[in-house]
Write a protein that binds this DNA or RNA. Structure first.
Length: 595
RNA sequence: GGUCCGGUAGUUCAGCUGGUUAGAACGCCUGCCUGUCACGCAGGAGGUCGCGAGUUCGAAUCUCGUCCGGAUCGCCA
């Protein structure tokens, strides 16, 4: 029989002294001193020390059998510890339980890794035994943080009259964008559903239906290759609002983030985030999701060196490339060996051709690695432009645009991390706005939507839609936190004619548009309100709040880099009968017999 | 799909210029121990060196292939 617990393992204090209590939990560690046995009893609330004395022979013998991860129940008395025995590390450290009765609910084999914080065990094993990994306090904290997060999100939107609507998980495939996960339909031979990459079209339809404030915490799916910050299924806070402009969406998102930070990790933040245009972000940081917790902004030397004798510089600028620098404070005395290693690393990790530097230190003065090719005043001008002072190091990359911006962006992050320029306790929110509406895809020889095909262009740029599409700015905005893109949204097109022009710009002809998005265009005939919204990446946000750097630590049952679940061995082959029922035949050379 | 790194005890790793019986730490097991909380002390068990082939008198070590894992680029509207 299971003893009903009176308390959990994380709540008893000296105030409970003398009480008869019952605890249930897992044996965390045992310290058998012979005459007395101490057990740390663990549940998700904490740890309580329980004690077996030799006074009860039978009980003591039973306690000797206890091993790690046994699941037990104990009856006993709360006793205050003597002052010298208090454990200040534990919330329950002022007391211990003198056990009067013990029940072993389940024995346990020795787990493949220890159930404690900060283990070094590799991910493959942790994922295979995920249920044990999830028993560890670090992951339990993350899961509980995540649960608190959900509650805050729901109450925030509920209080503001948002309606939570569930949209279908089985939907129409839209080949635009990421690859879809497909689901065959048994009752419709040869036809497939797709799992949503996001409920984009549904939430716009809900606006047409008059639910002027919608939100949903929703699973989304993308069949693309994984990264540390990318899983094939992930959770979004999906939001859409009618009769709003950018500021309304952004300011409500700021309020949400303020509440979330407060209620999940007790952090106070200003609900008014910095803003930067896409162009500025790219020019200053070389990325649309800059980590603005530290400086090291780019200095553009291109104009200063375009007539230089140094071919690498002048040649690059002539071909339309750029010469960029960043100033690393306090590194002006970096030795030759260190710089050589850095150069190698930069070439390796960023793909840059080489690294040029200017060192400023008391010993050598201003020393440029290519000074014999440059006029002294050019070097001086570069130092000034880079805002470098004595003791600083200016790192310079030259190359074709936009590659060199990308490379410099990586170098900037590298330096930020290496020289501890990043305040790990800071939460630095940033809006990036005014994204280009489309980009030219060389592979596909057509324009692609940067955000998605329903994003509205700026009214004043609409005229350029046909002549100069790349220069058209969109009413899209991304939310960036500490260098991670944690959300993105836009004001949508609610005008059928403009939507048609957009499709045609993207090379989607009328017939195709009809076939793929006809229902949306049709819906827009019947009174579509102006609307816009945002989608926030729950997993990434929680990852940052938890102080971690892997999505896998905030998702209960994540996939590995090959999008497999090692614990239950999915995906897996299915029986021929199942395939037959679904009218599916595997390609030759594919299937279990070819393993 | 490309590139790079890795795979040795339950776990994390060392050993890798080929050479006796493959080591360490933690964990595990046994014994001793009444105030531990990373308990301590003494002892012990535990290995297909990912797999296959090759070179060699001899391979954890060198070569090739293969599988697995990770990082990264492509990809991710």
């Amino acid at each position: 029989m299971t003893w009903k617990r009176t308390h959990n393992c994380g709540e008893l204090t000296a105030e409970n002294t003398g009480e008869e209590i019952i605890l249930n939990g897992w044996v965390s560690t045992r310290r058998d001193l012979g005459g007395v046995i101490f057990i740390d009893l663990r549940d998700r609330y904490g740890i309580t020390q329980i004690v077996f004395n030799e006074t009860d022979k039978e009980l003591h013998e039973k306690a000797e059998q206890l091993r790690g991860e046994y699941v037990i129940g104990v009856k006993g008395m709360v006793e205050e510890r003597d002052e010298e025995n208090v454990n200040p590390e534990l919330y329950t450290g002022d007391i211990e339980i003198t056990v009067t009765d013990l029940q072993i609910y389940a024995k346990a084999e020795t787990p493949p890794f220890e159930i404690k914080e900060d283990i070094a065990t590799g991910e493959e094993i942790r994922l295979t035994y995920r249920y044990l990994d999830l028993r560890r306090p670090d992951l339990q904290r993350n899961m509980i943080l995540r649960s608190d997060f959900y509650q805050s999100v729901r109450s925030f939107y509920h209080e503001r009259d948002f309606v939570e609507v569930e949209t279908p998980v089985l939907m129409k495939s839209t080949p635009e964008g990421a690859r879809d996960y497909l689901v065959p339909s048994r009752v419709n031979p040869g036809k497939f559903f797709a799992l949503p990459q996001s409920p984009q079209t549904y939430k716009q339809l809900l606006m047409v239906s008059g639910y002027d404030r919608y939100f949903q915490i929703v699973k989304c799916f993308r069949d693309e290759d994984l990264r540390a910050d990318r899983q094939p299924e992930f959770t979004q806070i999906d939001v859409e609002m009618s009769f709003v402009d950018e500021d309304a969406v952004m300011s409500s998102t700021e309020d949400l983030m303020q509440k979330l930070m407060k209620e999940t990790i007790g952090e106070d933040i200003e609900p008014s985030f910095k803003r930067m245009t896409y162009e500025e972000a790219m020019k200053t940081y070389g990325t649309d999701k800059p980590d603005t917790r530290f400086g090291l902004e780019f200095a553009d030397f291109s104009e200063l060196v375009e007539d230089s004798e140094f071919k690498i510089f002048s040649g690059t600028v002539e071909k339309g490339g750029a010469v960029l620098g960043i100033t690393v404070p306090g590194q002006g005395s970096m030795g030759r060996g260190a710089i050589d290693r850095l150069t190698e690393r930069v070439q390796d990790e960023t793909g840059a051709g080489g690294l040029i530097y200017i060192k400023l230190n008391e010993e050598d003065g201003v020393k440029c690695s290519v000074e014999k090719f440059l006029k002294e005043e050019t070097v001086e001008a570069m130092v000034e432009k880079a805002d470098a002072a004595m003791g600083d190091l200016v790192l310079i990359l030259a190359g074709p645009s936009p590659d060199v911006y990308h490379q410099m962006s990586k170098l900037r992050l590298m330096m930020g991390e290496e020289h501890n320029l990043i305040n790990e306790d800071e939460f630095d929110f940033l809006w990036v706005t005014d994204f280009p509406l489309v980009k030219w895809s060389r592979e596909e020889q057509r324009y692609q939507a940067l955000h998605h095909p329903f994003t509205a262009p700026y009214q004043e740029d609409v005229d350029k839609l046909e002549e100069d599409p790349v220069s058209v700015r969109s009413r899209a905005y991304d939310l960036v936190l500490n260098g991670y893109e944690i959300g993105g949204g836009s004001i949508r097109i609610h005008d059928r004619e403009l939507q048609k022009r957009m499709f045609s710009l993207l090379g989607i002809d009328e017939e195709e548009a009809e076939e793929r998005f006809g229902f949306l265009l049709e819906a827009f005939k019947y009174g579509a309100p102006p609307h816009g919204g945002i989608a926030l990446g729950v997993d990434r946000i929680i990852m940052i709040l938890s102080g971690g750097n892997s999505l896998r630590d905030v998702i209960a049952f994540p996939k590995n880099q090959k999008a497999q679940s090692l614990m239950d061995n999915s995906p897996d082959y299915v029986d021929q009968e199942q395939l037959d029922e679904l009218h599916i035949r595997l390609k030759r050379g594919v299937g279990p017999e070819h393993e």
